[in-house]
Simulated scan of single mutants.
Amino acid sequence: MTVKAKKHLGQHFLKDENIAQKIADTLSYEGYKNVLEIGPGMGVLTKYLLEKEITTYVIEIDTESVEYLQANYLNLASRIIEKDFLKYDLKEIFNKEPFAVIGNFPYNISTQIIFKTLEMRDHIPEFSGMFQKEVAKRICSKEGSKVYGILSVLTQAFYNADYLFTVPPTVFNPPPKVDSGVLRLSRKEDYNLPCDEKLFFKVVKTAFQQRRKTLRNSLKTFNLSDNLKANVIFGKRPEQLTVSQFVELTQLIEKDSK
């Protein structure tokens, strides 16, 4: 039995064993006892995770893939979660225990996977996996880059992001139309921001919605005082600011509104 890749689920099954092993080796497996693989398909990556000294769980929405895994990975059967990662409350499985996340992620939900990981950052110290190359590059890019944006700043506020290697379309069935990229996120030792975190998210998202404008113009909805808008930082465009400068910007806006 093999599983047919389903277009509506964005499935492209990895068929290269070496790359599967390389992805499994991207995590440190230190500081947590559990790892969760998103979208295991037919288990090409799962197989290498099961060799590690860690408890592997998988979460899979595709019934056919679940049946395949249950038939072929008997020692995993009780840890197959047939749910949608984006909608499922993982505390039901892990309670407050930390866990790592790994996977060959469906392209159509990859940025949503990142946002859910950020929401669960208290529980996820490490994360690695495969994205569309341009998305992986965007997540890891630094200020000044054309692709630096909301995803880069929000992720790097809490995690160190490393782009590891590029994967060609030929190692998938069916092959996607673009290259893929593997990245690793390692949560920062101190990942609590010295500002209002909800406001930080709002400032970053609002600033990049009009990325060609200066912050003075793009952040108009915050009703900033003229005194604050005179600050030199407001003459910059969002892609010129480092993550720590976005934190400083949030602190300034916070003080201004009091």
Results as ranks from 00 to 15, higher is better:
residue 242 T to R: 07
residue 107 Y to W: 14
residue 98 P to A: 10
residue 188 K to H: 14
residue 178 V to P: 02
residue 250 T to F: 12
residue 32 Y to H: 08
residue 43 G to M: 04
residue 60 E to D: 03
residue 59 I to N: 01
residue 183 L to A: 01
residue 187 R to T: 07
residue 206 T to V: 02
residue 202 K to E: 15
residue 174 P to D: 11
residue 218 S to K: 13
residue 89 D to V: 11
residue 30 E to S: 07
residue 88 Y to Q: 06
residue 145 S to T: 00
residue 251 Q to F: 00
residue 132 Q to W: 05
residue 219 L to Y: 05
residue 99 F to S: 06
residue 136 A to S: 03
residue 181 G to A: 10
residue 120 M to Q: 13
residue 94 F to G: 03
residue 112 Q to H: 13
residue 130 M to P: 00
residue 119 E to C: 06
residue 29 Y to H: 00
residue 44 V to A: 11
residue 27 L to Q: 06
residue 70 Q to A: 12
residue 94 F to L: 08
residue 146 K to L: 08
residue 4 K to F: 06
residue 86 L to M: 01
residue 198 K to H: 13
residue 135 V to M: 09
residue 222 F to K: 07
residue 50 L to F: 05
residue 163 Y to M: 08
residue 235 G to Q: 15
residue 187 R to E: 12
residue 8 H to V: 04
residue 189 E to W: 07
residue 50 L to N: 08
residue 203 V to F: 11
residue 107 Y to C: 13
residue 132 Q to N: 07
residue 147 V to S: 12
residue 199 L to R: 12
residue 149 G to A: 04
residue 100 A to Q: 07
residue 171 V to N: 07
residue 63 T to K: 15
residue 226 D to H: 07
residue 201 F to Y: 15
residue 12 H to E: 08
residue 77 A to G: 01
residue 39 G to V: 01
residue 63 T to N: 15
residue 80 I to Q: 00
residue 128 S to M: 10
residue 233 I to E: 06
residue 115 F to I: 01
residue 100 A to K: 06
residue 257 S to N: 13
residue 69 L to C: 09
residue 244 S to T: 13
residue 65 S to F: 08
residue 201 F to V: 13
residue 201 F to E: 15
residue 114 I to T: 06
residue 23 I to H: 08
residue 83 K to R: 14
residue 76 L to P: 01
residue 58 V to S: 03
residue 79 R to M: 09
residue 81 I to D: 04
residue 93 I to G: 03
residue 185 L to E: 09
residue 47 K to I: 11
residue 40 P to D: 11
residue 160 N to V: 15
residue 244 S to N: 14
residue 161 A to S: 14
residue 23 I to Y: 05
residue 57 Y to G: 09
residue 105 F to D: 10
residue 39 G to H: 00
residue 203 V to Q: 04
residue 175 P to H: 02
residue 139 I to L: 14
residue 34 N to D: 12
residue 24 A to L: 03
residue 28 S to P: 00
residue 47 K to W: 05
residue 102 I to L: 14
residue 172 F to C: 00
residue 228 L to D: 03
residue 41 G to T: 04
residue 213 K to D: 09
residue 214 T to V: 14
residue 131 F to G: 01
residue 174 P to G: 12
residue 257 S to D: 03
residue 108 N to R: 09
residue 10 G to L: 03
residue 146 K to G: 02
residue 215 L to Q: 06
residue 94 F to V: 04
residue 56 T to C: 11
residue 66 V to Y: 08
residue 54 I to H: 02
residue 242 T to M: 07
residue 155 T to P: 00
residue 16 D to W: 11
residue 214 T to R: 09
residue 81 I to M: 06
residue 61 I to N: 04
residue 111 T to Q: 10
residue 145 S to F: 00
residue 238 P to N: 12
residue 98 P to Y: 10
residue 101 V to W: 12
residue 39 G to Q: 06
residue 166 T to G: 07
residue 55 T to Q: 08
residue 159 Y to G: 13
residue 21 Q to H: 12
residue 109 I to Q: 05
residue 119 E to K: 15
residue 63 T to P: 10
residue 32 Y to Q: 06
residue 253 I to E: 07
residue 249 L to G: 01
residue 181 G to W: 04
residue 146 K to D: 11
residue 183 L to W: 04
residue 61 I to H: 01
residue 68 Y to V: 11
residue 9 L to M: 05
residue 161 A to P: 04
residue 114 I to P: 02
residue 10 G to F: 00
residue 164 L to W: 12
residue 221 T to V: 14
residue 16 D to G: 04
